[in-house]
Design a protein around this nucleic acid. Structure first.
Lengths: 343, 343
DNA sequence: CTGAAAGCGCTTACAG
DNA sequence: CTGAAAGCGCTTACAG
């Protein structure tokens, strides 16, 4: 079953098609320099022999890999850690957009704490990097600087942060926080708690908090600091925060949780404390995680369109690769109304 | 900021370290042929200059890419289709296992109906393929044959099917179906409905049905064909199936749904029909989807360990690449007990 | 232990 | 429109 032409090269194609190897190369790249009938003949032979251009050779010659490296930062860090489903969904859309533009995607899981494997471009395995992950931007900074110093092309998913090296593409979290809070206010809620850690280590979450404050301000509602409970991104912490909130004795009729996972825990906490959602308390989340549509009641939340996000990131990095001017941008999130707010 | 050594080659390192280019190559690959102090010196210089071996050149020379291609089959097919979260979770574990063995992973979304992009190996972008997806094996067959004919190394996630070309690694779905049903029987349930399409187009689901039948047989319980309702893998179809089942008037006290999404729809359908889960009806799913722990009640289900799965697939394909003997294997799933069965 | 040399399979200026 | 030739940056047999 094995023959001389099992793993053909452009030389083999040339020989059979009766042209030079250079012409084969041109014909397969659809060069207008090659006469049409020659081109067709060469392509025909290539197809018959199942020939594909050796990407290592082509890449060596052109210094281009037509590949993007996607670095996914694993916030959880554990061996069997689950990857954030939001990023996973983004990953799918990044692969789609990249494929549309003729790029392969090399995916790599990275620990936020590790030294990142940033040698993808230096080793000519990728033409540019996409960085995906939440985290503390103070830790990021020096590594981003190292990337920039190594002349690596990269685009990072996230907010636009002053003085941060490189380009970014993100979601307008402030607007999302505003939309969520405004929705609660329009439903007549007046005492809106906010649950989540927004101390600024994550600019994303801080921005959601900012949007919340702006909505209150614009509605002439006083901020009540006692209604702000910290919680990390987990169901358990949401549950605990709801307990704390009820135990505090402060009146509240709505909760804006800065992530869906927190919101889901909050709803469980409220229900276990005898509060009905949404009759007594309205709850909004953030992310539109796949879970949001299946919990009881289904969760009203703020969605970041992962298709737009993937597309924005891919267009951004491909622009950088091609030397086009690229601007850091934010995209607009949108409110997805389900059952958890009533109304 | 740009200097002569911005994009250094092994020749630059050689010049600075005062050795030949060949010695640089050997030193960086930790060859025992190089004297230790020479090796250290070379590695030091490489580090200082931020040098990384050009993978295109190395790959061209060795005919190896140290890369695995992961083809993910998109069952849904739509432009904004969501990827099955089970596969997404597998993807994470595949990347981890591959990284541990020194392989990069090139991920590519494929339409089941399209011509697959199987040229990864022929183009020397990858040393082997991992195929991930559910689907109709009758459609797969010719494409797998084409892969095998092209001498492509590949391993497919799924059951061991007679005469199927290539190697596979999968989950013992029959055992999973057995475990789920046995659990219901042990809880004293006698009239166990099964919901899902198991007509054989998917051998995975058919095997789950087989396990169900074996558990009934071993418990001496008669199979009741009226308690088998077809449903595709969606929440809506699960809901509809539950309605049909209740409308049929047949007595049943438990449901085995062949996927979690179906199970979640079934629970909603039962509840909307006034049946209490788990008090009146026990429900078991299959997959341990991320949703299972968050629905109400939380869903008892059969879990396929994605860490073992990812590891098995990667070890399999790497074995094939290295020319080692590789056997197709099945791994054992396990029951995850939550609230939906009571007991 | 080290070096000089060949060659992996392309792409593309150069020449005609 | 086509071909001969150079060269991308490695790895590895070969020679010493």
């Amino acid at each position: 079953m094995t023959s001389k032409f099992d793993n053909p090269t452009s030389r083999d194609i040339a020989e059979i098609a009766g042209v030079s190897q250079a012409t084969v190369s041109r014909a397969l790249r659809d060069s207008p320099l090659v006469r049409e009938d020659t081109r067709k003949r060469v392509q025909q032979v290539a197809r018959e022999l199942n020939y594909f251009v050796n990407r290592n050779a082509a890449g060596l010659r052109t210094q281009l890999s037509n590949t993007l490296a996607l670095l996914l930062f694993d916030e959880t860090g554990g061996a069997d850690a689950e990857i954030n489903p939001f990023f996973l969904s983004m990953l799918g859309n990044i692969m789609r957009s990249a494929a549309n533009l003729g790029y392969d995607v090399l995916v790599s899981l990275q620990q936020l704490t590790d030294d990142w494997h940033i040698e993808y471009q230096a080793s000519h395995r990728a033409d540019g990097l996409i960085l995906l992950g939440y985290g503390d931007y103070r830790d990021y900074r020096p590594k981003l600087k190292a990337l920039a110093n190594a002349h690596t092309r990269f685009i990072i998913w996230g907010p636009i942060v002053d003085d941060q090296p490189g380009h970014s593409f993100g979601c307008d979290n402030e607007s999302g926080g505003f939309q969520a809070t405004e929705h609660l206010l329009k439903l007549g809620r007046k005492s809106i708690a906010i649950i989540g850690e927004t101390s600024g280590r994550s600019p994303e979450l801080a921005a959601r908090h900012e949007g919340y404050l702006r909505a209150l301000r614009e509605a002439g509602v006083m901020e009540e600091p006692a209604l702000h409970i910290a919680a990390d991104h987990s169901e358990e912490q949401g549950f605990d925060a709801a307990q704390k909130l009820m135990a505090s004795g402060h009146h509240f009729d709505a909760v804006f949780a800065v992530t869906d996972l927190i919101a889901i825990g909050v709803m469980r906490g409220l229900q276990s404390g005898g509060r009905r959602v949404p009759q007594d308390i309205s709850v909004v989340g953030f992310d539109d995680s796949p879970l949001a549509a299946y919990v009881t009641p289904t969760l009203t939340t703020v969605r970041q369109n992962t298709q737009l996000a993937g597309d924005g990131l891919v267009r951004g990095i491909v622009g950088l690769i091609k030397g086009e001017p690229v601007e850091s941008r934010l995209m607009e999130p949108s409110l997805v109304i389900r059952q958890s707010c009533g109304g």
